[in-house]
C-alpha cells in the first residue's frame, strides 16, 4: 500500500447560519496515486468535503468543524490555504469564477508570481502546464473567447502550476457540453498515468467509470459506501435508490440478469457489455 496523503477522521461540519450539518462523522484515507470518484445527490456534502480538504473550510467559509483532515500530516484547518494549495489543487464547477486574468498565460503565472518564485522557475512551469492542457496556441486569448472546456483546462493548468500532488475536480465538467467534458476526463486520465492523485466529484457515472479505481458514495453529509469502483458502480439498485443514473449498459445487463441471464459480474462500459452479452447469447 502506498503512502496516505489525505487522512480524514470523524469530520463534521455545520455552516455558519445553518442548523443542518453539511458533513457528519466522515472518515477515510486517500493514498498517493489513487483515482477516487465521489458521487451522491445534491446536498450530499461533496463540495463541502472538497473545501474542507483544502482548508477553505473552515478558514474562509466559516462554520463549526469537528474532527480533522490531515494533508500530508498537516491539519487543513490550521495550515494556510496557499500552503495547502501547493499540495492540493482544486478546480470547481464554475469555470469563470476561478479565472481572474485577461489571458491564459497571465492566469497560469499569477499564483506562481504570488508564491514569489524566480522567473526561470515560473517559465519552466508555465511551459510545462500550458502544453499539458494543450493550450499553447491560445495563450494570449481573453477567456471571453474560450469555450467552456478550454476555460476549465485553464483552471486545471493554473492549479497544476502550483505543482500539487493531489488534484480535486469538483463537478468540473457539469457545465460543459459533451466535447468539453470529454476533454477534462481525458486530461484526468492522463494525469492519473503520470502518478497524480485525483479526486473527482462527478454526476456522469459513464465517464467516471473510465478512470476511477475507488468510489465514495455520499448522502446527506454521510459516507454511505466507500470501495471498489466496479463493485459500487454496478450496484444498480443501490445507485437508483439514491437517484443516481447508472451506466445504461450496466442497467441493460441488470435487467437481463433479472430475466435469468447468468452474468459473472455486471459490465460497466460498452466493450465489457458487448463481450459479456454476446458470450452469454452464444452459450444459450
Amino acid at each position: 500500500m502506498s503512502k496516505p496523503i489525505i487522512v480524514c477522521s470523524d469530520l463534521s461540519f455545520v455552516y455558519k447560519d445553518s442548523k443542518k450539518p453539511a458533513l457528519k462523522n466522515v472518515s477515510f484515507t486517500i493514498s498517493e496515486g489513487e483515482f477516487v470518484g465521489i458521487i451522491g445527490p445534491t446536498g450530499a456534502g461533496k463540495s463541502t468535503l472538497c473545501w474542507a480538504i483544502n482548508g477553505v473550510i473552515p478558514q474562509i467559509m466559516q462554520g463549526k468543524l469537528k474532527g480533522s483532515v490531515e494533508v500530508k500530516g498537516k491539519p487543513s484547518n490550521k495550515t494556510p490555504v496557499d500552503e495547502i494549495s501547493q499540495i492540493i489543487g482544486i478546480v470547481q464547477q464554475d469555470a469563470e469564477a476561478q479565472l481572474l486574468m485577461t489571458d491564459i498565460e497571465k492566469e497560469i503565472v499569477f499564483p506562481l508570481e504570488n508564491l514569489s518564485l524566480p522567473r526561470e522557475e515560473i517559465h519552466r512551469r508555465l511551459e510545462y502546464v500550458i502544453n499539458l492542457v494543450n493550450l499553447d496556441e491560445e495563450r494570449y486569448r481573453h477567456p471571453f473567447y474560450l469555450s467552456g472546456g478550454q476555460k476549465q483546462r485553464v483552471a486545471v493548468a493554473a492549479a497544476l502550476a502550483m505543482e500539487p500532488e493531489v488534484l480535486i475536480l469538483d463537478e468540473a465538467t457539469s457545465e460543459l457540453d459533451p466535447v468539453g467534458a470529454e476533454e477534462i476526463h481525458e486530461l484526468a486520465g492522463r494525469l492519473k498515468k503520470e502518478g497524480k492523485t485525483i479526486i473527482m466529484v462527478e454526476h456522469n457515472i459513464d465517464e467516471l467509470a473510465k478512470h476511477a479505481d475507488r468510489i465514495i458514495v455520499m448522502n446527506q453529509g454521510e459516507i454511505l459506501r466507500d470501495g471498489d469502483a466496479h463493485e459500487i458502480l454496478t450496484d444498480v439498485n443501490f445507485l437508483q435508490s439514491l437517484g443516481i443514473y447508472p451506466p445504461q449498459v450496466t442497467q441493460t445487463a441488470f435487467h437481463l440478469r433479472e430475466a435469468g441471464w447468468q452474468f459473472e459480474r455486471l459490465p460497466l462500459n460498452l466493450v465489457e457489455a458487448t463481450q459479456s452479452i454476446s458470450a452469454l447469447r452464444k452459450s444459450q
Partner: peptide, 11 residues
C-alpha cells in the same frame, strides 16, 4: 435499458 433487455431476451 429495460427495453433493450426485453429485445435481447426475446431475440
Amino acid at each position: 435499458p429495460q427495453r433493450l433487455a426485453e429485445l435481447l431476451n426475446t431475440q
